[in-house]
Nucleic acid binder design. Structure first.
Lengths: 202, 202
DNA sequence: CGCTCTCTTGATAGACTTCAATGTTAGTGG
DNA sequence: CCACTAACATTGAAGTCTATCAAGAGAGCG
């Protein structure tokens, strides 16, 4: 979709489908920086920052609404409340990265994967795209590995553990969290950093 | 300095000294989320986000200027240019976190530590606090470990490698980068994400 | 049917952690 | 000036976690 290094003059509101932002290293390994679900504006930061060396890619078929930077700028100038809300969104993105730093620095494989499931489920349910501890999850095991910094093989084995412990069921692109409470414990997940009005915990 | 969980009504401009933001996990391990050097406003995000569960702490003696949130808000409302600049700062913070995600996910011990040195040096030199590949670096090896997600022992051994390769010299609180080019290569460091006007590479 | 992509499994190697001890340095009080 | 202490740095040995390599199994698709 977007390549590294160009300098767009539009932002994209993701209407349907999933996007990832990723960085490809010199040795061709890949790190997925963020997962984007419908309702988000993945490149809002481009309003104020020139392109960095990471790329947006689609995981599924996706529909985006294209919004010129100029439109955002006039909106921000005219409506301080909206400006504050947008700023706030980018601050929450930063907090999500912060959690990833904690996870990659201090969590083991099980915790990282469990945390990804927890966060994704809560973010989806905030916009009504998930409920009853079920949601879409259109990643491959290799994608999960690139997101949480593990090899595909080890992701596979960790998933087997999570399944054996009856914490999740994941087949194809549909995920079901069988034991939310214990998955949260494994992940050491606290949704506060997402700054949602009401948490989806149960 | 600041504890977890309270809800301040001021921001602090760091005038002198070093701060860290860190999160203490349940098992009492610690992850340092960010390092703050003079000229920064470490908790600017608190303008729009309630407190999260991380703490600010001093690494050295530090002087801060206390700025009420209200002052920032009126400034933001009155001066769109300043508002944009502040927003931009928080976006750069997010990019720094993003780099940490890449580092923790895909770099080994040497690369992580080297990257920390590179980033810190460039950020310091941007405000004139470092030059000639020398700068202050008032962390302990244990701090470095908590920052880059390694054990103290392994940090020590990795440092010995960096020293043996004549890449750095670090004693007490003063750091000298002996071979910038090779350190950058080890770190896979590209300062673009810091969005500084001119890079300090040489 | 053959192809490709994804998932799965086993064996082996490497990176990093943990535990425990020792060395070093700077500061403190006598 | 010296003993004493505390904090930090360093070392060795053993163990755990995760990566890598290699191969096979299943599913979807032209």
């Amino acid at each position: 979709m977007t390549q590294e290094g160009n300098r767009p003059s539009n932002c994209y509101l993701l209407v349907e489908g999933w996007l990832i932002r990723c960085k490809v290293l010199r040795d061709s390994r890949r790190q997925i920086l963020s997962l984007h679900v419908p309702g988000e504006v993945p490149d809002l930061h481009a309003l104020y920052l020139h392109a960095t060396d990471c790329a947006l890619a689609t995981l599924t078929h996706a529909r985006v609404a294209c919004i010129p930077h100029e439109a955002f700028r006039t909106l921000i100038a005219a409506r301080p409340t909206i400006a504050a809300a947008l700023w706030r969104e980018t601050l929450i993105d930063a907090q999500i990265y912060q959690q990833r730093v904690i996870g990659l620095g201090r969590r083991g494989a099980l915790g990282r994967i469990a945390h990804l499931f927890c966060e994704t489920y809560v973010r989806l349910s905030a916009t009504g795209l998930a409920k009853d501890h079920r949601c879409e999850f259109p990643l491959t095991q290799a994608d999960v590995g690139d997101a949480v910094g593990l090899s595909t093989v080890h992701v596979n084995r960790s998933l087997q553990t999570l399944r054996a412990e009856q914490l999740i069921s994941w087949q194809g692109r549909s995920l079901e969290i069988l034991n939310w409470k214990r998955l949260v414990a494994v992940a050491d997940f606290d949704p506060a950093y997402l700054h949602l009005d009401k948490s989806a915990a149960s």
